[in-house]
Design a protein around this nucleic acid. Structure first.
Lengths: 239, 239
DNA sequence: GCAAAAGTGTTCACCGTACACCCATGC
DNA sequence: GCATGGGTGTACGGTGAACACTTTTGC
């Protein structure tokens, strides 16, 4: 290994450029969770932090591509088809004790159960945490998480992103509980259901829940095609 | 001058890091305008582009500080007290023909008349353009402008940012015209006024418009204190 | 048969919308 | 006095909010 040969030189100093990911998932107990990794590098060693890494100019064609690569490498999540959006960019001389660092933050919404195995088998250093009981985090990651949660809370009301957290086929009860969890408020089931039905962006399946000790609920799917059509015509999703 | 001595070396290649600013202003004729500069550097020389520049690690403590410095240097605008928010970060290997470049974009809303002089006296290479008649722009700046306009259109409805574009004291008519311009739709004056009055976030002054050839309108001020209070109590601004 | 969640309809209050007439000023 | 935008109230319809009882299943 050529250890510390520094081959890439510039006329002016350059900020380090990283991407970090907020990975949110909804657990079976309806708690919203965040995926964290435990740091093994010496800076903040042992502390929990967001999965992230430096942008690699030779591998990454874009910031988003870097985020997807990092996500896969650090958590085992293949982000193909996963909802991933840019949140914000943090950059200052002090947020990383080593040097001036810029981090572009992305957030992902995934169906936690699909990815549960990979994350937990990977190592003890990747773990899901309930969002209102997070450990102390490295760098300014606590602030970043807070911003991410606020973004989701705001966005979920007027864009149909909640489905990303659920399995493809879900019950309206699950959807309601999801909204109640994220928004942290109770919703009236009858009004909620009526509102959703009126939107006409769900496919009502002829399948039902199984193995529940109560009346099984009908399963639904989000109809992305229809939503896109309606949006073009001026329809606005809103809960 | 030490021309091209390249003193700053790193183990891995680093992206160039720039900040660019979308500066929006409302002109007296109620058109929404954007401030552009004409490039003098050889890349895209002569083309119009967003004011921007590279982050200077020795001068800039943060990305936002960099944006404010650049704004002042390129357009003469002292951004103290100016509304400035991060829009998005663009980064890829291809958006700048020279090299892998990351640009953190900020957008500012200013009262155009206050800054008109500086921008126009500065040089022929800084100019206001009506947003729906922009010249062809350098780099991916057209895409960036589009995103910025969309952001404003969305944000203006549910956050009181419109006032940033008006003088401190304004008439409700000016405010209405502003909204009509940004949202590109007609609003009913009576309903609009009633809605605003009900919000109770305006100070009704005992001053009036002067020099108009019709009944002079009352002047108002946005009451930021009151807005903050109300927001804490769960009030949501909405037009 | 009991617990637990699913499913469904009606009433009421409030808010957004549509709409028309008089007022103060400059020229 | 006329043109121009400023200022105000009312009636209607639609939408969100509140609310209770019956249904299906597992145990």
């Amino acid at each position: 290994m050529s250890t510390s040969t520094k081959e890439y030189c510039y006329k002016y100093p350059r900020s380090a450029l990283a991407v970090d990911c907020l990975v949110f998932g909804l657990d079976e107990d309806n708690s919203l969770k965040l995926l964290l990794i435990q740091r093994s590098q010496k800076t903040f060693k042992g502390k929990w932090a967001l999965p992230g890494g430096f942008v690699q100019l030779d591998k990454d064609a874009s910031l988003e591509a870097a985020a997807r690569r990092v996500l896969r490498k650090e958590t085992g999540i293949d982000s193909k088809g996963v909802f991933l959006e840019q949140l914000y960019t943090f950059g200052s001389e002090k947020r990383d004790p080593r040097e001036w660092t810029t981090s572009v933050i992305y957030y992902a919404l995934i169906n936690l159960n699909e990815y549960k195995l990979k994350a937990s088998t990977d190592a003890s250093d990747v773990q899901w945490f309930v969002i209102d009981n997070l450990p102390s985090l490295a760098f300014d990651h606590t602030e970043i998480v807070e911003m991410g949660i606020n973004r989701i809370r705001g966005k979920v009301r007027y864009q149909p992103i909640g489905f990303e957290l659920l399995p493809k086929k879900f019950t309206l009860g699950q959807l309601q509980t999801l909204y109640e969890t994220i928004l942290n408020e109770k919703l009236d089931r009858r009004n909620f259901f009526r509102k959703l039905r009126k939107m006409d962006i769900f496919i009502e399946l002829e399948e039902f829940q199984e193995g529940v000790s109560h009346r099984p609920a009908k399963l639904y799917q989000f109809d992305e095609q229809k939503y896109k059509q309606l949006k073009k015509k001026g329809f606005n999703f809103e809960i």
